[in-house]
């Protein structure tokens, strides 16, 4: 009846009105709420799209091959994530840990790429201060990056805790992995949108004259 997000705690058999787990329900409500958060950030980007009065402009700085590679990394991390869950649900904690760590590493790789991209942009003269493109771009992708970072911490924590308390990664407690998985996939689908809306659909270059 009362297991409040206790990662390490073996839940008692819950009796809920809907038969659904409290924590899983909480996660879905949170994700619904986070849709509005990213929706507003994406709206900000779109409203100011093509409204920068000075450069650098998107077409001058974007490196589509690199970003495509980053998008691929996150897609693969979603695969490893779901494989981790499948392994844990089969009772295979060892492969569960391996896939979880793989997910976290792919996330780290994504973050390294993003860090490289950001610093490259800054050397090109694009900062949040310089124009609206910089402000909206860094805010949107920065908050996404923060979500990825949090996800990497969470994944690592699940693995570390499972080493301290093996029961947390038993098939019965696969929810611990399922929840971080839901979060991770959500971060992935947000990137699917950002990749298309921000990177592939660039505004037309401003007319000089």
């Amino acid at each position: 009846m009362q297991q409040a997000g206790a990662l390490g705690h073996t839940p008692e058999v819950e009796h809920t009105t809907t038969g659904l787990n409290h924590r899983k329900l909480l996660m879905w409500v949170f994700l619904a709420s986070d849709c509005l958060f990213f929706g507003t950030l994406i709206a900000t980007y779109l409203l100011y799209r093509g409204k920068s009065t000075v450069g650098p402009y998107p077409h001058e700085v974007f490196d589509i091959p690199l970003t495509s590679y980053s998008a691929f990394l996150l897609l693969m991390s979603s695969l490893t994530m779901v494989l981790a869950l499948a392994a844990v649900q089969r009772g295979n904690a060892k492969w569960g840990r391996i896939w979880l760590l793989a997910t976290a590493l792919l996330g780290c790789h994504f973050l390294v790429n993003q860090g490289w991209e950001f610093s490259h942009f800054v050397t090109e003269g694009l900062t949040p201060r310089v124009n609206l493109f910089g402000a909206t771009f860094f805010t949107l992708t920065g908050f996404h990056g923060a979500h990825v970072t949090l996800g990497v911490f969470w994944l690592t924590a699940v693995v570390v805790i499972s080493l301290l308390r093996p029961a947390t990664m038993s098939a019965k407690n696969s929810l611990n992995v399922e929840l971080v998985g839901l979060y991770w996939h959500f971060v992935d689908i947000v990137w699917i949108i950002i990749f298309t809306v921000v990177y592939l659909l660039q505004p037309a270059p401003p007319l000089h004259g």
Partner: peptide, 30 residues
């Protein structure tokens, strides 16, 4: 991703209702 990796296709309808609700509202706002 949502249907298969997040299992919404196979899970309880309430989860889909909540998530799709938030998603539709977010898209409407945009």
């Amino acid at each position: 991703v949502v249907m298969f990796y997040m299992h919404l296709k196979f899970d309880h309808g309430l989860f889909s209702a909540l998530f799709v609700g938030g998603l539709v509202l977010a898209i409407s706002v945009v």
